[in-house]
């Protein structure tokens, strides 16, 4: 399903005009070295103040809203775990109807939903699917740390093959997570929405510009953000960003966008590093044997080849010079 997407309203961020203010304040209660909260802050830096945030239950909700303090500088609502897509639908519908009826004035604020991978890939998939299919103008951001971290590192359908979690433990008869990571960006792209992208906080300009494109399109946008969790993954807190970079450099987490069904790989890795480099710095993969690693390498290579085939078959048009640059 291909469609032409109007990106004329896209306001590109360059090294010179990077917005600095995060709408998430300091004093939040995230773990030391949490890349998920960093990613969330980056998204809000690109969006700015004129937005309404809708947060699924999860790490980001509890670490920002523990009564009597809130880390949020923008309007924020948390309702439940599985319904961020639905709550955002209601907000967007209300804004649209009230504007039409003269009950509010001015341009519509950006409606932004944040949810973890469990809240997106598992329990909230239905609400997300409904919201995407109905075409609400909002941005859904999945902050993927590859397990239920808030409840103590249980597996989700977004946990990668081979990772040990508290409910997919490695053992004599178990490799750990025995299933492959659910491909959420593909599921969202299959909803025929104007914009889908994967992002990494290690590539912050790429991330923020994908947010800007998501803001520019007329309809739903889905951003899938790789979010290192030192607590759940068993890595040193200081390596969060370098690990996120490594995930891209090994093709474990490729960066791409799907614009109206057309693919653009935004970070092409000329000489991918071996997956082993990525796995060996994380305790969740420590139990894997050499043959397991070879298997994972093959999975990564296959997925990468598939993505490249898609990008070759359905290439996105080159970004035009017409994109406005902020000063």
């Amino acid at each position: 399903m291909l469609r032409d997407v109007d990106l004329s309203g896209y306001q590109k961020i360059t090294g010179k005009n990077v917005p600095r203010e995060s709408m998430v304040a300091s004093g939040h209660r995230a773990c030391q070295g949490c890349v998920e909260v960093l990613a969330m802050g980056m998204v809000t830096r690109a969006v700015g103040k004129d937005c309404i945030v809708c947060n699924a239950t999860g790490c980001m909700e509890i670490i920002t809203s523990s009564f009597p303090q809130t880390a949020w500088k923008t309007p924020w609502i948390h309702v439940a775990f599985e319904n961020a897509g639905a709550v955002a639908s209601g907000i967007e519908a209300a804004l649209t109807a009230m504007t039409r009826k003269g009950k509010r004035k001015g341009p519509l604020p950006t409606v932004l939903a944040f949810a973890g991978d469990g809240a997106t890939a598992d329990i909230g998939l239905q609400a997300l699917s409904g919201a995407l299919e109905r075409g609400h103008k909002f941005i859904y951001v999945c902050l993927d740390n590859e397990a239920y971290m808030n409840t103590g590192v249980q597996r989700s359908s977004s946990t990668p093959f081979g990772a040990t979690t508290t409910t997919s433990p490695a053992g004599k008869k178990s490799i750990g997570q025995s299933t492959r990571k659910k491909n959420l960006p593909a599921i969202c792209a299959a909803h025929d929405i104007p914009y889908v992208a994967t992002c990494s906080p290690a590539y912050h300009l790429d991330l923020m510009n994908k947010v800007r494109k998501a803001m520019a399109v007329d309809g739903p946008a889905y951003l899938h953000i790789y979010s290192v969790c030192p607590t759940g993954w068993g890595c040193k807190p200081e390596i969060g960003i370098s690990l996120a970079k490594l995930a891209v450099e090994t093709n474990v987490f490729p960066l791409y966008e799907v614009i109206g069904g057309r693919y653009n790989i935004t970070k092409k890795v000329a000489k991918p590093k071996p997956v082993l480099d990525y796995l060996k710095v994380q305790r969740r993969f420590r139990h894997l044997a050499e043959s397991d690693v070879a298997g994972i390498q093959k999975q990564v290579d296959d997925s990468w080849a598939y993505l490249n085939a898609l990008a070759a078959a359905f290439p996105a048009p080159k970004e035009k010079g017409g994109a406005k640059e902020e000063e």
Binding site: A25, S26, G27, R29, T64, Q69, T70, A71, W72, K73
Partner: peptide, 9 residues
């Protein structure tokens, strides 16, 4: 808004 700034982490 942003009152978490009171919590000195």
């Amino acid at each position: 808004p942003g009152s978490s700034a009171k919590l000195k982490t």
